[in-house]
């Protein structure tokens, strides 16, 4: 059993390959304080698991929750202002467009912003 397959079955980002995605709908997933500075936390947003990160400069980012390389839990990864590092094999991904300098497949990134202390993710 591979991690990526089962994730697709569980309604993860793998589904996007086969499903038309429109502009998306904003969803409140929690409060900003739930994501400690520099770390990530995973949320389920409208049936999709999303990793939300609050960087040390306060900026927010959201990506698919499982690494496209081998399904690693990205919310457990390390961050700086440029990249996210997956904890399993240390592939890096750019916040700007989800691409990987190390050559892994690209990450899906989702719009995320703060509204009066609430985290709002658009999927």
């Amino acid at each position: 059993m591979s991690v990526t397959q089962s994730e697709a079955a569980a309604g993860g980002p793998g589904l996007f390959g086969t499903q038309e995605v429109s502009a998306g709908t904003p969803h409140v997933v929690g409060r900003v304080e739930e994501v400690p500075p520099g770390e990530g936390r995973a949320f389920v947003v409208d049936g999709v698991q999303v990793a939300v990160f609050r960087l040390r400069d306060g900026s927010l980012h959201a990506t698919q929750a499982a690494c496209p390389h081998a399904g690693g839990p990205l919310a457990d990864g390390q961050t700086d202002l440029d990249v996210l590092v997956c904890p399993l094999h240390l592939y890096t991904f750019r916040w700007t467009d989800g691409t990987s300098p190390g050559g892994a497949a690209s990450l899906r990134v989702y719009p995320v912003h703060e509204e009066s202390g609430q985290l709002v993710v658009t999927v």
Binding site: G12, R41, A42, G71, L74
Partner: peptide
């Protein structure tokens, strides 16, 4: 959330 799951749907 130190011990929250990072893959909630898996």
């Amino acid at each position: 959330g130190q011990f929250r799951t990072a893959l909630p749907l898996v």
